[in-house]
Design a protein around this nucleic acid. Structure first.
Length: 586
DNA sequence: GCCGTTTTCGGCCCGACTGTTTTCAGTCG
């Protein structure tokens, strides 16, 4: 059992104990244990075998025993017992916004509600409001939450779907007779959330049946929903559905294009083909008058890759991220698609947390990870004092951190840690650190972390007020909320971008996949207004640094080029830029 | 359940907000 699996179980134990009304500090100890296990840099099984696990801060006798049992036997009796005492539906209720462990406990004990369906029924019958501590409003909120849950539960964050997809694709690639495998669909388009995983493979016809058989009997498959000669669908243990389609070599480019989508892009592409006298489907081009059916031999002409398909229609190759029918066809016709920012263009980042606030890794660990990624700089922006839940720093602690950064920076000639901070934008638009302290930073990220339920106008004014502060360099993530299940806070994005243009503020694309606040439309508006963008992972861990790639995907949807993105500047350029910007505003 | 220059018990992060009830518990970040 690996770290992630162990951490997931510890965390679930914490949640189960919460629902059962256990001592909150005991619950927290399990959740903390899960975080600690996740952020371990050493091999968990080695720590267990040597007994070192017990010496890690936050892991005491009880947790080390449970971790040991999990790692050595793959099971935990305590967990199994605990889990069987709480119906699964009761845990699901926790995903409804505004419903926490205490409310769930009351509902399951007084009204004996054990499933989401029963909960919905009880709400509709007005039974919830009769329970002490509950009222009409709570009932309405639960119903709204249930409806949001239904909308979003069918979709998965790219961060959780991608590793699953890669595992399955790698498995298929190794099967006999398979010569080529690609992940298609919204995953290839790097959408923030995906509905299902689409895997496309080229296989010998004689081996296709065996490939399908192996695919549907993979150990991660929970249920088979379709099993055919060219297409099979399964539901994986992770709850994500996964399709495998097999085509031949000649069909592959067409199938890849078709299954990558988006639907809107495909419709437009097919209509362009039609104008040219061809019908386009997942198997190839065919002459309209003949209306040939499927079959490689019926292809009007061959295309060796997707580029050929676009070329046939007089278009430049459109990268998957841009396939939304949002202007890419016009640009592709004029051969004026922008040179988009790529992962390789990233020279560093600006919004990372460390153990100085709520990060999981130390300054030097983060810096080393950034160096391994080949970056020239790493911007550290730990939380300020108001973010007390995130161990926000006092002004004194920030100064101490800056001294530590100075010391570390002596180690390198071709790499720099930049001194930033993430200050809170308070409800009145003021910042929670003094101007003196902020002026001492290389740059300042300002973010909203509280009072989310303002009106759109109030929230917009609050943020505009904050970015007018001459010390603010960058506007941090524009929502502290999860992408799934929750609404972003109300905001007039155009007004904020307009204000940023006036103040010279950089807009952060928060690349952490659960906090995708700036959608690509806003990216695009920022570009129109000449507002510079920074792609930031909001990374709390070394692994999180890699999340910058999600931001790259979103940036590409916003048609951003290297020139628009702060992270693509070299260290020297960034330093000059930050100094120049400070002078301009003083 | 974990921790300890306040060390074997007592404290563990906290402020804002909401919905409830009318002073507070629960939720969230």
């Amino acid at each position: 059992m690996d770290k992630k699996q162990v951490a997931d179980i510890l965390s679930e134990i914490g949640t189960l104990l919460e629902v059962k009304g256990e001592n909150p500090f005991k619950c927290r100890a399990y959740h903390a244990g899960a975080r600690i296990v996740t952020s371990l840099t050493q091999d968990l099984s080695v720590l267990v075998t040597s007994g070192e696990i017990r010496n890690i801060k936050g892991i005491g006798d009880a947790l080390s025993e449970k971790i040991t049992e999990l790692v050595t036997t793959g099971k935990l009796e305590y967990y199994e017992k605990l889990k069987s005492s709480v119906p699964p539906g009761v845990l699901q209720m926790l995903s409804i916004g505004g419903i926490g462990p205490a409310k769930v406990r009351v509902l399951s004990t007084t009204l004996k509600i054990a499933t989401l369906d029963e909960l919905e029924k009880a709400c509709k019958e007005g039974k919830i409001r009769s329970v002490e501590g509950f009222g009409k409003k709570t009932e309405e909120n639960i119903l709204a939450g249930l409806s949001a849950l239904k909308t979003y539960s069918a979709r998965h964050l790219i961060s959780s779907a991608e590793p699953v997809a890669k595992t399955m694709a790698a498995f298929v690639a190794k099967l006999k007779g398979v010569s080529r495998v690609e992940i298609a669909g919204s995953l290839r388009r790097r959408a923030e959330t995906i509905g299902d995983i689409d895997i496309l493979a080229v296989a010998k016809e004689s081996e296709a049946a065996a490939v399908m058989q192996s695919f549907t009997s993979h150990p991660d498959v929970e249920r088979i929903t379709a099993h055919g000669a060219t297409k099979s669908s399964v539901i994986l243990l992770s709850g994500i559905s996964c399709d495998l389609r097999i085509v031949n070599e000649l069909e592959f480019p067409f199938a890849l294009n078709y299954f990558t989508g988006s639907k809107e892009h495909n419709v437009r592409l097919r209509s362009l083909a039609r104008e040219a006298g061809y019908s386009l489907n997942e198997y190839g081009f065919s002459k309209i008058e003949s209306q040939e059916k499927r079959g490689a031999s019926k292809q009007a002409f061959r295309c060796k890759d997707e580029e050929d398909i676009y070329r046939m229609l007089g278009l430049a190759y459109v990268p998957p991220e841009l396939r939304e029918d949002c202007g890419e066809f016009e640009k592709a016709q004029e051969k004026k698609l922008p040179q988009l920012v790529t992962e390789q263009d990233i020279k560093g980042t600006f919004h990372c947390h460390t153990t100085h606030s709520d990060g999981a890794h130390s300054l030097s660990e983060m810096a080393n990870a950034a160096r391994t990624l080949g970056w020239q700089y790493l911007g550290i922006a730990d939380h300020s004092i108001s973010a007390s839940y995130a161990n926000g720093m006092t002004e004194q602690r920030l100064k101490k951190q800056q001294k530590e950064i100075d010391l570390l920076n002596q180690n390198w000639s071709n790499f720099r840690i930049l001194k930033g901070v993430e200050v809170d934008i308070l409800a009145d638009g003021s910042l929670d650190f003094s101007d003196d302290v902020l002026a001492g930073c290389d740059y300042v990220v300002a973010s909203v972390h509280s009072s989310f339920k303002m009106t759109e106008q109030q929230m917009t004014e609050r943020i505009v007020q904050a970015i007018s502060n001459r010390n603010v360099t960058m506007l941090g993530h524009l929502s502290g909320r999860l992408l799934l299940q929750r609404e972003s806070y109300p905001l007039n994005q155009e007004q904020v971008v307009d204000a940023a243009a006036k103040c010279g503020t950089i807009i952060e694309i928060n690349a952490h996949p659960t906090r995708l606040e700036l959608n690509w439309r806003m990216c695009r508006y920022a570009k129109e207004k000449g507002v510079r963008v920074a792609i930031n992972p909001d990374a709390h861990t070394m692994n999180g640094l890699k999340d910058v790639r999600f931001g790259v995907g979103i940036a590409r949807k916003g048609w951003l080029t290297r020139q628009d993105v702060l992270n693509s500047m070299t260290l020297k350029e960034v330093q000059q830029f930050l100094v120049r910007r400070k002078k301009e505003r003083e």
